[in-house]
Write a protein that binds this DNA or RNA. Structure first.
Lengths: 239, 239
DNA sequence: CATAAATTATGGTCTATACCAGATTTTAAA
DNA sequence: TTTAAAATCTGGTATAGACCATAATTTATG
């Protein structure tokens, strides 16, 4: 029978996780400061940080830079096989969505855009960057590349809402299929700042290529989700 | 113009990431020891560990407990909307799969099994636990719960292969639909050990409920994937 | 030569401390 | 009372070092 020593940092992790689980620490509530935890548990602050970072990596808590640690809200269900918009999906789950336009520009297609969307190198491409919030908390930064040939003047339209709807109503474009890829990746400086997290923080990186009824690639999205936000959920029928 | 100081740990991260990217550090190759890196870069070992853990969280490297740090292989594409088996999927991507049966038992249905699969509390349920490896590296631990009423004697059959195939060939069971959920979670002691990672290490936790042609729930899988293994990929057609 | 014991290597955990940069609160001045 | 300045708080980064437990290598013994 092996002697089972539980590291202090995992004990603190467990202790805090229990409070979160039993509801004594509610979503978005602030945790005691690192120094307070250090005193309360009589362990070193580095050990406290280890526990906090463990909980963070599990998605149970999140940090605001130099402003404390907070309990994460429940994950948002997201079904990639359904075409519900961010706004509608969030609302359907009793949460409050919000969208902030970070920038909208017409740029010259880079090598990457060329390879990804087939737009001729140097030709114009629209880049829309948005931040999405749930209950006031930034959870997603989107980089949306759109082919202007298929929807000229798009950037002059209101862009806080569902782009899919806009493409349909204003341009008669129906998205017939999408190709989605996702994996965990780090946030670089810019997106990290826009999500108010530390550079290098983990995100769920999701790309979505959207094709119209003629199988033209209309839109290529890069989505940088905070890693603690989503629970992917889907039903697959075998035919 | 703000002065941009890059933390030492991120500099080391970047330096190592570059070597991985440009191919001078190949998949599964061993990195220099922490103490060697400390000396080579003239920084503290804790700072080295911070860099290594950053790379680990990004999925670029993995650790073997007390045996060093290694470069991660490329991610495996996994399409949850297709019903290809682990073995076939891995092979199709030029990798070598392997399966190890950890245990197979007939147990009494717990509260959780009752809620999840509708099996009466205390009634028998098969639990099959397997470890899956890619190129000799453990990447997944599966807990597969199966309803014995629908496939009596299953545990006496060879279980290294695709369970879906076995259910079909031996019992005439066709999986008509599956419900899949996935989110990042920590590995607890047992699964961590079975994957040879530290307790609390992040995994992609995936559940799959499989229903037969009569909409009976036949099987409920819990899958604990190392977090650095998969790239989820899918094509969705809008009908 | 094979096996066992001893030594070294390696990552894992923990303490102590210091300094930094930005956020927040308190205090002082207008 | 409001605004600005100073002090404090908070997480972020880094050093130094110690000890631990297990894995790997080397040495000693039969």
């Amino acid at each position: 029978m092996k002697y089972l020593h539980i590291p202090y940092y995992l004990r603190l992790r467990d202790s805090l996780a229990k409070k979160i689980e039993d509801g004594s620490l509610l979503p978005h509530s602030k945790l005691p400061s690192e120094r307070d935890l250090k005193d309360a548990y009589d362990i070193n602050r580095v050990t406290v940080r280890q526990a906090l970072m463990q909980l963070e990596s599990e998605g149970l808590i999140y940090r605001l830079i130099r402003r404390g640690w907070y309990v994460s809200p429940p994950r948002l269900f997201y079904d990639p096989t359904q075409s519900i918009s961010f706004m509608d999906n969030v609302r359907a789950q009793g949460r409050v969505p919000e969208t902030v336009i970070l920038s909208k520009t017409e740029m010259a297609a880079s090598d990457w855009v060329n390879r990804t969307m087939g737009i001729t190198l140097g030709d114009p491409v629209y880049l829309l960057r948005r931040r999405r919030l749930i209950d006031g908390r930034a959870v997603l930064v989107e980089h949306i590349n759109v082919n202007p040939v298929l929807c000229p003047g798009l950037l002059d339209l209101p862009l806080e809402c569902s782009l899919t709807e806009t493409l349909k109503e204003q341009y008669g474009i129906e998205i017939s299929r999408t190709v989605i890829n996702m994996y965990p990746a780090p946030l670089d400086g810019t997106q990290a700042e826009e999500l108010q997290v530390v550079a290098g923080a983990p995100c769920l990186y999701l790309t979505r290529a959207s094709y119209d009824q003629h199988d033209n690639i209309v839109e290529f999205d890069q989505e940088f989700w905070r890693h603690d936000v989503l629970e992917i959920s889907m039903e697959v029928k075998n035919t």
